[in-house]
Design a protein around this nucleic acid. Sequence first.
DNA 1: TGCCATAGTATCCAAAAAGATACCATAAGG
DNA 2: CCTTATGGTATCTTTTTGGATACTATGGCA
Lengths: 113, 113
Amino acid sequence: MAGDCKVETALDILVGKWKPVILYHILGKGTLRFSELQRLIPDITKKMLTSQLRELEYHDIINRKIYAQIPPKVEYSLTEYGKGLMPLLESMHHWGLAHIKHLNEIYGEERAK
Amino acid sequence: MAGDCKVETALDILVGKWKPVILYHILGKGTLRFSELQRLIPDITKKMLTSQLRELEYHDIINRKIYAQIPPKVEYSLTEYGKGLMPLLESMHHWGLAHIKHLNEIYGEERAK
DNA sequence: TGCCATAGTATCCAAAAAGATACCATAAGG
DNA sequence: CCTTATGGTATCTTTTTGGATACTATGGCA
C-alpha cells in the first residue's frame, strides 16, 4: 500500500516555502545568527523564520546555540545528521534545474511555469 | 543568491499531498484509469485527483490517453521523461525511511512525528 | 533619562489549499 | 424508460498557511 511510501516524510522537512532558502544560507555560511538570516532573506517575517527554524530543529537538521548575552545572540548551524540531507538537496536542485530546461523545450521560453 | 536554488522546482512537482501516492500507484501498475486511481486512493476526491493529475501532466511526468468510448476511458501512465524522476523519488523514500528511524531514536517510539 | 539592538511572542487577518456536494453527457443493459 | 458507469466540472465551505503589526525583556551607550 501507499503507507510504505515515505517520500512525504522527506517532503515534510523541505516544504514550507522558506526552508530550502534557509538551509541554503546556513549551508553556505556554516553558522548564522537569527538577524543575519533575516537580512539574507528580506521578505521573511520573524514569525515565519522562527517557525521554520523550530521545525528544522525538531527534525535534528539544524541546531540552535543560545549565548547568554544581552542583547541576545542565537546561532544556527547544520547538525552532523543534517549534513546527511545535503546530497538529497543537491539531487533535487539538479533535477530542478534540468526540469526548468525541459519545460522550456516543451512550452518555450515565453511561458516559464 | 538563493535564486539559484532550484530545490523548490523539484518540490513543486511533488507537493500537493496526493502526488507522491498517485505516482506510487502509477509506477507500480504501469497504467491506471481514473477510476482505478480513485479506488486505490479512497480518500481522494475527484476534484483533487483531477487537479493533481493535470499538474503532473503539465510537467510532462505522466500522460493522459483518452479512449473515444462511452462510458469514457482515460488512462494515465508515466512518460519517458517522467521515469527520470524515479531515482529522485527513491532517494527521497529512502531518506524518509531512515529519518523516521532517526526521529524514533531521538524522541522514542511513543511520539512518532 | 531615553534610545538602540536582539530574538523572539501574541494576535489578528488574508490568501491559498483542500474537501463536500451536486451536476453533466452518453451508451449499454434490463 | 430507468439505472448504471465513467470522467469529469462547478460551487461553496472549511482548513491550513502565511503575513502584518504590535509588544516584550534587558543591558549598553550618549
